[in-house]
């Protein structure tokens, strides 16, 4: 984003999800994006076989947050040998739910005229952070007190060279909202909230000390198992 413009959500680079050698010549690389509240799986399909590929379709296994294709996989023309196409598949979060390990794992089946292929990929939990995840300050204080200490996890983010305002702006681009900022003994303490698509709230305290490139983030959540994935998002957003 330019000066004064909000930055967009963090999007990881595309990685190869399905190598051609495991899928009779079909290679799929992809990533996940969230734009204006819409989650999309963006994929590049490449035909590395010697015959034309047609009749593509996609299906997900049940997963932790109910991610499901919101429509068919739009491959409207046959894919010739050595040809690549970009496909964006919008996703909904109201599909069937089953807890996965890790929590953000997604098992996918892709079919074409040759066969059915399976692969697993992992999405950043931040894809699930909704736009109205800014908790009321009063509610934040009460919730923070109410969540038991056993549900608090602490993580270090090493080698981060942003000041607390820049960090706050960057995180807001991914729907991690700063509710309050206090400075105590040279440390900026940012109190932040985010809400997942399944209405799970995560509360955070981010500590930034001037001149110290190591941040500390403490996460409090009633569903403590999401904390590891949320921490990974903090790292990814702040370091990219």
């Amino acid at each position: 984003g330019g000066v004064g413009l909000p930055m967009g959500a963090y999007t990881p680079p595309k990685t190869i999800w399905l190598p051609a050698m495991k899928a009779k010549g079909l290679e799929i690389s992809g990533t996940f994006v969230r734009r204006a509240g819409v989650i999309q799986m963006e994929m590049t399909l490449t035909n590395k076989a010697m015959s034309v590929m047609t009749d593509f379709a996609i299906q997900f296994n049940r997963n932790s947050f109910g991610l499901a294709p919101a429509g068919p996989l739009q491959v409207l023309t046959p894919l010739s040998p050595n040809q690549s196409i970009e496909v964006a598949l919008p996703l909904s979060t109201v599909g069937p739910v089953m807890k996965m390990e890790p929590l953000n794992n997604l098992q996918v089946a892709v079919k074409n005229n040759i066969d059915v292929f399976y692969f697993s990929c992992q999405y950043p939990i931040s894809m699930l952070f909704v736009e109205d995840g800014k908790m009321e300050r009063q509610v934040f204080l009460a919730t923070w007190k109410d969540i038991p200490n056993d549900n608090e996890s602490q993580f270090q983010i090493k080698d981060c060279h942003l000041n607390s305002d820049a960090a706050s702006n960057k995180l807001q681009g991914s729907n991690i909202f700063t509710i309050a900022k206090r400075t105590v003994e040279g440390q900026d303490m940012l109190y932040q909230s985010m809400k997942l698509t399944n209405s799970i709230w995560v509360l955070a305290e981010l500590r930034v000390q001037a001149g110290n490139p190591n941040y500390t983030v403490c996460l409090k959540c009633r569903a403590a198992e999401v904390s590891q994935g949320v921490f990974q998002c903090y790292e990814a957003v702040l370091k990219n």
Binding site: Q138, L141, R182, Q187, Y191
Partner: peptide, 20 residues
């Protein structure tokens, strides 16, 4: 920022977290 004592409450939270 004056908001019916909430800012102060965050201050108390921050201090208690820094000096438990």
């Amino acid at each position: 920022e004056i908001e019916d004592g909430l800012d102060e409450a965050f201050g108390r939270l921050a201090v208690s977290r820094t000096n438990p």
